[in-house]
């Protein structure tokens, strides 16, 4: 797949924006302005942005929980301020301050999210079936991590998705650690993409730190799904340089993480790698970079202001209203 100069700059811009929001979210959690969790995603954010940036607006996307799906949603075109306000328990949030870490942007194909890992494998069967019934070429993209792929729901969902030739793309962001447990303790083989072969599902493994490689691989898989050829599995090898969630122990397999190894991982920081590449190819200039960074900072500041100035959701009358549809 060939990307235009405009496409490549769009990927870069979205990655800068996602990174800026990750830093904002981490700070707001530290300042006590988030009401529940934040699971940082910096350095592992290229996969989400690369996956989502070139999807159709009506394609359905299940965002990964890492970085709370900001990279995915920004890629999809969602204005992140409503999701930020949601994290702050505000009435203007995308779930009116009831969901906090849940996202809903129906017009952008983000039809809801569960905080229980593995839900994407079963719920996306329904999205895929509905998309197929609609017959308008919609594709479902389900993002998840290596930890999630250990759930049994994967088998039930993937099996049916292949059987029914559903238009689903499974995007694994494999950062090698499931919360506090290393991949070595969770899966016997190196590539989890090998799981797809059992269903006769095509799979591809890409460098998740290479945003263009991710966008290309997902793009091919999406094309295949749109043509009615069924699901594809894309494994993006990525990294985690932070703890599981902000404030949680930076440990794995019962031990402190080896910080020398973490420093080594940091050399694969995707934003600066991509930036260097774009500069070398003459696609962007230093001035462009400054401008994109400035715009991202302004966007984040405006989103923070919007969230903090929005009313806190404390209207108990909505409890009845939201429980049942009339």
């Amino acid at each position: 797949m060939k990307f235009s100069k405009k496409d490549l700059i769009k990927l870069y811009t979205n990655l800068v924006r996602a990174r800026t929001f990750d830093m904002l979210c981490t700070r707001l959690l530290a300042e006590g302005k988030f009401v529940s969790f934040y699971h940082e995603g910096a350095w592992g954010d290229a996969a989400g942005v690369g996956t989502a940036t070139f999807l159709r607006k009506d394609d359905i996307l299940y965002p990964h929980h890492r970085a709370h799906g900001f990279p995915h949603m920004i890629g999809k075109g969602v204005d992140p301020k409503y999701y930020l306000a949601e994290h702050c328990g505000r009435a203007t949030g995308c779930c009116s301050g009831v969901g906090t870490v849940h996202a809903l942007f129906e017009e952008y194909g983000i039809l809801g999210q569960s905080a229980i890992l593995g839900a994407q494998f079963t719920v996306s069967v329904g999205w895929g079936l509905a998309a197929k019934k609609n017959g308008t070429g919609q594709v479902v993209v389900a993002s998840f991590g290596d930890g999630t792929l250990a759930r049994g729901t994967w088998h039930e969902g993937a099996n049916v998705a292949v059987l029914w030739k559903l238009p689903i793309v499974y995007v694994l962001e494999n950062n090698g650690i499931a919360q506090y447990v290393s991949l070595e303790k969770a899966y016997p083989l190196k590539d989890m993409a090998s799981l797809a072969a059992g269903y006769g599902m095509p799979a591809v493994v890409v460098d998740g730190q290479d945003i263009v490689a991710v966008a290309e691989a997902v793009g091919e898989a999406v094309k295949r799904a749109r043509q009615g050829k069924g699901p594809t599995f894309v494994e993006c090898k990525t990294i985690r340089v932070t703890s599981h969630g902000y404030g949680s122990p930076h440990m794995v397999d019962g031990e402190q993480r080896d910080m020398n190894m973490v420093e080594e991982l940091k050399k694969r920081e995707p934003l600066s790698m991509y930036e260097k590449n774009l500069l070398k190819q003459g696609i962007i200039t230093k001035e462009d970079i400054e401008e994109i960074a400035k715009a991202a900072k302004e966007e984040a500041a405006a989103a923070e202001k919007f969230a903090m100035e929005s009313p806190i959701q404390e209207d108990a009358s909505i409890l009845d209203q939201y429980l049942y549809a009339e």
């Binding site: 719920v123 329904g126 999205w127 998309a131 729901t153």
Partner: peptide
């Protein structure tokens, strides 16, 4: 297409219902 036989996969059956319901179907 309207009366769908599935494998023994209760999570897929019920999750499918949730997904399809959010897209306007009545599973």
């Amino acid at each position: 297409d309207r009366v769908i036989d599935t494998p023994i996969a209760e999570a897929a059956i019920t999750g499918c219902a949730i997904g399809a319901a959010t897209m306007g179907y009545r599973p």
